[in-house]
Design a protein around this nucleic acid. Sequence first.
DNA 1: ATGCAGTTTCG
DNA 2: CGAAAC
DNA 3: GCAT
Length: 1020
Amino acid sequence: MNRKPVPLSEFALLSDLEPTFEERLARLEKAVGPHPLFKPINIESDSEDDEPALPVRKDVEREDGRLAGQKRVRDGQGQAQDARKEAEKAIEALEPPKKRQATTSSRQPASKPVPPVQPTKPPRPELTEVLVLDELSDGPVASTSKLPTAAPTKTRSPPVTSSPSTSPPVVDVLSSDSDSDGCAKGSKAVNARVSKVRGIGKAIAPRASRSNAFEVPLVAGQAGAASARTRKKPRLSLEQALTEARKIKGDKLAEQFKTVSDFIDYLEQFSPQLADSKKILAGCRIVFVNTDHWRRSSQTVVVRAAASTAPRNRFDQALRTNMSVAAKNGATLVRPEDFVPPPYEVTGEPFDLERAEAEGWTTHIIPLVPQGQRAPTYKEIIACLGPDSSGINDDELGPFVQVVGFPWITKCIDVKGKASEWPYVLKGDFRQSEAEAEKEEKVRQVVKERERARKKQAKLEAAKKKKLGAKGKGQEQEDTDVEESDGSDGHADGVSPLGPEDWPEGEAPPAGYFDQATSQSTLSSLPPRQKKAKTPTTAQVGGGGSLEQEDVEMSDPIEDADLTRKMAGPSSSPAAQESPKGRGKAKAKAKVAKRAVPKGLEDELAMVDKYGLDDIDEFLEKGTIDPSPVSFDDDECMILSNRVDSFSTEEENSDEEKEEFNPRKRVQRNYRYACDNPEENRATRNGPNEPVAFQLEKLADLQSTTTEKDQFRQRSYKQAANKLRSCPTKVTRFDQLVKLRGIGDKMANKIIEILRTGTHRRLTTFQTEREKTVKLFCGIYGVGQAKAADLYDRGARSVEMIRRDPARFGADLLHVGLKYYEDLLERIPRDEVTELYGHAKRIAYNIDPKLQVWCMGSYRRGAETCGDIDLIVTRDPSDGKTHEGAVQKLWKGLVAEKMVRHELTVPEDWRSLDALVHDLIRLPKPGAKMRRIDVLGVPFDEIPAAMIYFTGNDYFNRSIRLKARRHGYRLNQRGLYKDVARDRKGDKLTEGVPVPGIKHERDIFRILKVPYCEPEQRLP
DNA sequence: ATGCAGTTTCG
DNA sequence: CGAAAC
DNA sequence: GCAT
Ligand SMILES: O=c1ccn([C@H]2C[C@H](O)[C@@H](COP(=O)(O)OP(=O)(O)OP(=O)(O)O)O2)c(=O)[nH]1
Ligand SMILES: [Mg+2]
């Protein structure tokens, strides 16, 4: 947010003084509180939390004249598939913050999807003419708004307002001259008004699209560049308009602007030029009202007539000021006549964003409260709204429009502003009690949910422990530490054996899953090349074995004599000293999430359940319910609405948790380990949540990762993004979000901000030069957070700069990284990988026809572009030969053909069976870019584990490894080991013993009870 | 209040 | 041992 | 940052 265009390349000196993001945000929020749109929804107390219902255009289109060229084009179609692209583009558009100073937010009303219902509302009396231009409908905007879902469904709209679907934004009319000189015009002229349209996304600034056809183009995309450029010149900026308006003195003011709406009409002629849609109030659709004429004649009631004499919502100086402030800060001003509450049936704090957006629901009402006077009553407020001078009906204010005092605005925007009260509570607002109660209910529901889950977890844990202790031949269960190890079953502390309940699906594993050999028939095809000479596993655990059986199964899996892989194998690794390297991790952490849980909620359970049931997430129903609820599930049939309860399921309660007979089928696939996701909701990059996930991932990438804490935070962001990607339907509500494992309240709030604005402030507004530059340096191969920060602190500000002065900044790896900086940043087209892979195979074949070379990593996962080339080299040793030395020969072959360039790292022992090479390679043709390649030599019997490892992706690996760990195993690139003893901290004390009988990837999945997952599905 | 994947290579 | 990488 |  600093000035300074800053080509990030050059040396920005004062950047050293920049406050960090945290400082800025802290300062801002301390004074202002959270962004009004994103006021965190606090689970615990917070009854006052008001999550304003605010529709905000989610993708903001920037039409900055100057860069119009790169405006993204949105064609309004297939969002799904292009979600990602779109997201990318959006980002791109936002990314160069430096360039976009003058942007205007032009959020076009989202008209499109919804049929233009909006008849014009009754024109206000004074209007002289109404002009509705609807060209905007074509806008780019459309695409987003297009989220069809909600909009169409709308129910009735409040009578008063015009119909919801917003119509095209208004466009004002006004003679052109007026714009040049701004205010001067008589209000009358000014009034030539526009259609109503509350919908104007942009506050004031409907694009005066009047005649300019080209204005529209912004939608059109690139083409719009030129036009965009032209657009900016003639119009008065909002700023200027406001300035002009400010000059109008006393009487004149009253004369020119009789009502609040008149003023809005005036402002609407101008484009909000400074608008950065990121302004603090962007997205707030505020109605300013003035109840004064009501108060005067109050008791007398009568009303109707009154309107004519004393206009409703009389405009005055204070309003001018207040409205100007709001407008300048990005709020959308809505005429009282155009007030649109969400339809009453829309209840609850989580609301339908798309619809809110499409229908232009008003979010805040700010009554003018003259000094020393009492706040207006509910009645007075509603009397000021709607097209009819008598106001709207009691029930038309809608459930969650907030009525706030002007100080609220001050508080939002002015660091020093003070506001004693937030949303003020209106006297006589009958909604208060109900709405409040409702909210409370929801909050409790969530809390309760968590509480319940926690209890279950605890119980389960306890039960397991007990069980273990009991059956573990009197093994002291306390031994959690050390010693144990060799004892076949002492599971360390938190270890829980895999049991049927661990089967993610909750359902029994497909018959035959446990014995591949025979299962053949039922099993879906096995991976092509994998031959199943399968061992007739004794595992009989078919359907739902009991825990005991499980144990049996794991403890005595065949002594498969075959490759007696030397047990020592794993331990043999050189440095493998498993010295307990418990490095004290000192992390004095401050914030502790208090998860205070109001107890005594028990009784409410019933009610909550009922309440909550109705709005169970759509997403839950979707991917989960089988259309044929046929009874195979005995026990849940009894439950009335079957799956209603949905969550709660999880595996947590899996165990003997029968307490609540809620064990119905799990509706939501919300597993602890991402690798457990069943087929139907594996993470994908084209799901409905992709745009959000994409942004979240950006946020993750942006996280500095200097401290351990930061790294885990980053991990959390990524995991949350992946979780979102695994949801088959769009998740938009807070309560839905927090139910997803891996998404807590902080994350949910961030997601909500993303949903509403299309981005997160951290991604745009707040990013220091240092942060940006450090990130930039991290792109250099061999440079990570630490080195990057160091470079920056030593004065480096651009890659060029470092190149120029190699002496000053290390060398070695860095050298190579610098040399090919540009090449290595690029991803490799799949075809090129295929080509390089072909060369490798050819050379390998010439060395030894029985050598096998496979391309792994993202290539195996089917990616269209790969970050590098990952190869595995192995050889079936059945004829006595191994691949020993093969890696080196292959390498020499590549070098001979001049493809390999550098040796980044090479194994200390080329002869080692698991030689690993990291290097650079390029096709032997001119112009070919330098690429990264990793070649891993793998002993044949380690192939299954190595394949899992090298196939990835990294989060999939982490997830499956974590699951393994939690169940007493250890999974790494060489194999799966059981009976691993660990100390309290989790550091391993023993290597564990290799689980025998593993021949294929599937065996590992099976043992860990992870549903087999094709490479393409191993996380996005 | 603590863990969060598990490993190799380099300097 | 820490940093960077897979 | 999330879950335990
Ligand atoms: O931290 C990591 C990084 C990678 N891997 C595994 C999984 C990954 O699939 C494989 C190859 O790593 P690479 O960095 O090449 O990732 P990728 O999945 O191939 O993606 P891409 O190369 O397209 O960036 O190594 C891990 O287990 N942990
Ligand atoms: Mg790769």
